[in-house]
Amino acid sequence: MIVFVARRVAAGLALVVVIATTTFALMGLTGSDPARQIVGQTATKEQVAAKSAELGLDQPMVERYWHWLTDAVQGNLGTSWFSGESVTDSLANRLPVTLSIVLAALLLSAVLSTLLGVAAAVRRGALDQLVQLLAVVGFAVPSFLVALVLAVVIGVDLGWLPATGYIPLADSASGWLKSITLPALSLAVGAIAATAQQVRGSMVDVLRADYVRTLRARGISERSLLFRHALRNAAPAALTVLALQFIGLVGGAVVVEKVFGLNGIGSQATSAGSQGDTPVVMGVVVVMVAIVVVVNIALDVAYGWLNPKVRVG
């Protein structure tokens, strides 16, 4: 198990480095002259050159990258070219927002897809068809569209939950919960639909398995049969899908944050991306990929824990 986790961590680190390198190369090779953009069109050549030197842009790219990498390993992601703010600090301020909605969405997806999938597999009939329908709707309606509708209907028309803004957990637990409910829900719809479909399929298969019949023959309770035995065996396949869904979920956060006016990493990515603010873009990319990697390792560990063939030889 330790070897298994160590491998996943190593692969995750490799992924972060590869992505960071690619991003750096892309930004460096194709970006227009950032110094000129920062100082403005009216600035003199000397001013541009000075700015260039100040940002270290006059050095060769490989050297700049090495510089960035050694700093990054120590937790220093540089300073924004435009605001002069420390990238590490601004990311740290925004991280709780994004993490809140993304993890809440993951939790929602896991719980709701399990309930829906199990119910569909056991009850079949109308409920089953509803889950199938949800799978199509969840695929066809992008999360930001769900977010827009939720914001208008529940946030504005009904006024049940705030349509914009984020309240830190430290300020008010209930306020925090209210402020992330709609964003998390809109993010989760797609993942719920896809995962519920998988839970349903696996459950249908498992419930047909011989050992379920044998367990029934031993007279164990229906609840234990469904939620202890059948679900446990159906869970690994569902986790695989959930892990894949989570990647899309992090991407979705970028758009959903805009709808709900949340100052998370996603909205920072949008603004820094359009400005060409390389240090911020680098920081955002690294953090987002890191979130994906960490959560996926956690889901892998859960997978291993659920599947004794992975855990014990």
Partner: peptide
């Protein structure tokens, strides 16, 4: 596997700001 592990929107943001 590498490409599948990256959120598409993030990559596209980077590419569009670069290209």
């Amino acid at each position: 596997n590498l490409l599948m592990a990256v959120p598409a929107i993030v990559v596209l943001l980077v590419v569009m700001s670069a290209i």
